Computed example of a mutant assay.
Amino acid sequence: MDTQDAPIEDGHDEATSNEKIDGVAQQMRGDDQLGHVDDLRSMARQRLAEAGLPVDDATVDAVVDAVRRP
């Protein structure tokens, strides 16, 4: 059984979809810089799905482009 062992912080669910997508891209950029990414598109699909975000081609492309942007 899952339990709530810590308080939920105010604002935890207030991020917009675009802010969440930006957050996924930032996390992936860090992973990529550390050499932990074999396939950006596959990772983008996985991370977006885990975050409950759209996994359509346009969103995946936007994340991959953001990761590759300096």
Rank of each mutant, 00 (worst) to 15 (best):
34 L>N: 12
45 R>H: 11
18 N>C: 00
34 L>K: 11
54 P>I: 11
59 T>A: 01
40 L>R: 09
34 L>Y: 09
51 A>H: 00
13 D>K: 00
2 D>R: 12
47 R>M: 12
63 V>T: 02
55 V>Q: 09
5 D>R: 08
69 R>A: 15
8 I>N: 08
54 P>V: 12
30 G>K: 15
19 E>F: 00
11 G>K: 03
15 A>V: 04
61 D>M: 02
7 P>Y: 13
27 Q>L: 10
15 A>D: 09
24 V>W: 01
64 V>H: 00
41 R>V: 07
69 R>V: 01
25 A>Q: 05
1 M>G: 13
5 D>I: 11
50 E>G: 03
19 E>I: 00
33 Q>Y: 02
26 Q>P: 04
70 P>T: 07
16 T>P: 02
58 A>T: 07
48 L>T: 03
12 H>F: 15
6 A>I: 14
69 R>D: 10
46 Q>E: 12
11 G>P: 06
1 M>W: 09
44 A>P: 04
3 T>Y: 06
53 L>R: 03
54 P>S: 12
3 T>V: 14
58 A>D: 14
50 E>F: 05
18 N>K: 15
27 Q>I: 10
10 D>G: 08
49 A>C: 05
18 N>H: 13
43 M>N: 10
54 P>N: 13
58 A>E: 15
56 D>H: 06
42 S>C: 09
67 V>F: 05
40 L>D: 08
17 S>L: 07
4 Q>D: 08
53 L>N: 01
67 V>A: 05
2 D>G: 07
33 Q>K: 10
26 Q>E: 14
10 D>M: 13
33 Q>I: 01
60 V>L: 09
53 L>G: 07
26 Q>H: 03
61 D>P: 06
38 D>A: 11
2 D>Q: 11
8 I>Q: 12
45 R>V: 08
65 D>R: 11
60 V>N: 04
69 R>E: 14
36 H>V: 08
17 S>F: 11
17 S>Y: 01
39 D>P: 05
30 G>P: 03
20 K>A: 13
66 A>N: 00
34 L>C: 02
42 S>L: 06
54 P>E: 13
64 V>E: 07
32 D>W: 10
69 R>H: 09
50 E>Q: 13
26 Q>M: 13
1 M>C: 06
10 D>Q: 13
45 R>N: 12
58 A>R: 07
4 Q>A: 11
11 G>M: 04
64 V>S: 05
38 D>Y: 08
43 M>G: 04
59 T>K: 01
2 D>M: 10
68 R>K: 14
54 P>W: 13
5 D>M: 10
9 E>S: 14
29 R>D: 15
12 H>M: 08
47 R>E: 15
67 V>S: 08
3 T>F: 12
38 D>W: 10
50 E>H: 04
23 G>K: 03
25 A>K: 01
47 R>P: 00
42 S>I: 02
67 V>P: 07
